[in-house]
Design a binder for these strands. Structure first.
Length: 428
DNA sequence: TCTGGGGTCCTAGGACCC
DNA sequence: TCTGGGGTCCTAGGACCC
């Protein structure tokens, strides 16, 4: 497959692979149910609300991503479709194992999502690329039972494109040759490009840009004006120049969210408060797992966006005095914020919390300690002056030492991370 | 009856400072 | 009538992703 006549000098040419696990959640379920190999299979979201993964057979039957279950329940029964509630723990575990296997085969890898990873294959000679990828694919299939597709090209965006065509062929697709890139981009609808969503598609179509090739050839300045740097980067990448390089460090999280749709409408303040508190509990748990602290808490509540009548959705952000990972301080703030945005006589369908302004414990600790110690120094200087004026021993230096040590201790070594639920009402 | 959950990045505009 | 200018930081909201 292609690449032999590339005009790029080898030394400058990056080869980037995108590995994508096919119909990932469905494939995980199939590992334990080989009998479902050729049957339509669908995995549902939380509360069994809508389809979030579909086997090829289910796609053929017209089941859309995100389609509510009640809308295709009938056809599901008629076609003997296998339906699963989602099991994220299982999928996460599969993902970790596959990523570890891939990582052991390449010098540089970036995990992009639960079912996708970018690999740097620059070191693999062009004529060996195909078999190298084929081997990766076979290994994952053999050891973990999950089918994957691999697309290789010059940039991440083009690797995504290559992967798109890999899915339509044998699962491996190498797209390095300029002419071939041209050909395949001309066959790709503009909305299939990574980063071009509904809104940009709509706009581009009005401008007569309906294929990836036309976007590639669009003037970058005009694109920048209309679609900001994001659009400009996409064009750059389509032209084979890297705009999104591998992420070096394992970037730490910038936000932690916990939210749920309620299976039934929630009307009482107490139930809502209970939900918010349990979300905060889970969110702060995640925060501690990440070894981080947060200084802001956001809470939101929404009524059903699909039902007629007034739609109410509100969000409230609370600034804590001190960054923390201590559940009760967020609970207190959350309860107060909920009072501000809660409106009685409404049926709430969804609520959630998010933690923002995250910092690593180490970073925060360092700045906190330096603040404390500079305060302490100031205090000591003042004490010196006082003692000189009024005679020594008037004020004890020991007291200052003790106070600062105690503050430090309380801030970082408190064992009381979780809260007790005694004061919270139970939901029947 | 029933419609997911968790993220990232960018921009414009306001507040504030010198 | 004339009414600084530049920088930074923060926030809300939009767009997109899996």
């Amino acid at each position: 497959m292609g690449g032999r006549h590339s005009r790029h000098p080898l030394s400058l040419m990056r080869k980037i692979a995108l590995v994508d696990m096919n119909n990932f959640y469905v494939s995980c379920e199939r590992v334990f149910r080989p009998d479902l190999g050729n049957k339509p299979v669908v995995v549902l979201s939380n509360n069994d609300g809508c389809a979030i993964a579909r086997s090829n057979e289910a796609k053929t039957l017209g089941i859309k991503m995100g389609e509510p279950y009640f809308k295709f329940k009938e056809i599901a029964q008629k076609m003997d479709m296998a339906i699963f509630s989602s099991n994220y723990t299982l999928y996460q575990d599969f993902s970790h194992r596959i990523m570890a296997l891939l990582k052991s085969q390449v010098p540089l890898m970036e995990v992009y999502s639960i079912d996708e990873a970018f690999l740097d294959l620059t070191h693999v000679p062009e004529e060996e690329l195909f078999s190298f990828c084929q081997h990766l694919k076979d290994q994952v299939r053999q050891y973990l039972g999950i089918p994957i597709s691999i697309g290789v090209s010059l940039t991440k965006t083009l690797a995504k494109v290559a992967n798109h065509f890999a899915k339509k062929s044998e699962g491996v697709f190498i797209l390095l040759d300029e002419k071939e890139i041209h050909t395949f981009l001309s066959r790709l609808p503009v909305n299939e490009i990574w980063g071009i969503g509904r809104n940009h598609t709509k706009y581009l179509l009005t401008q007569g840009i309906d294929t990836a090739l036309k976007l590639k050839q669009a003037p970058p300045k005009w694109i920048r004006q209309k679609m900001s740097v994001v659009g400009e980067r996409i064009v750059t990448e389509l032209n084979g120049k890297i705009a999104y390089d591998f992420e070096e460090d394992l970037a730490s999280k910038k936000m932690i969210t916990v939210s749920r749709s309620f299976p039934k409408d929630v009307t009482s303040y107490e139930e809502l408060e209970w939900a918010i508190c349990s979300f905060i509990e889970r969110a702060t748990e995640k925060l501690r797992e990440e070894r981080m602290l947060a200084q802001k808490l956001g809470i939101f509540i929404k009524t059903n966006r699909f039902s007629e009548g007034t739609y109410y959705s509100n969000f409230q952000l609370i600034h804590l005095d001190v960054a923390s990972h201590y559940t009760p301080s967020f609970i207190t703030a959350g309860k107060k914020a909920l009072k501000d945005i809660y409106k009685p006589h409404l049926a709430y369908k969804k609520a959630g919390v998010c933690l923002l302004s995250l910092r690593s414990q180490e970073e925060f600790q360092a700045s906190f300690l330096s603040q404390i110690s500079s305060k302490k120094e100031q205090l000591m200087l003042t004490l010196d002056k006082l003692n000189q004026r009024y005679g020594k021993r008037t004020v004890s230096y020991g007291a200052v030492n003790q106070a600062t040590t105690s503050i430090t201790h309380r801030q970082f070594l408190s064992p009381h991370y979780t809260t007790s639920w005694n004061e919270l009402p139970k939901v029947k």
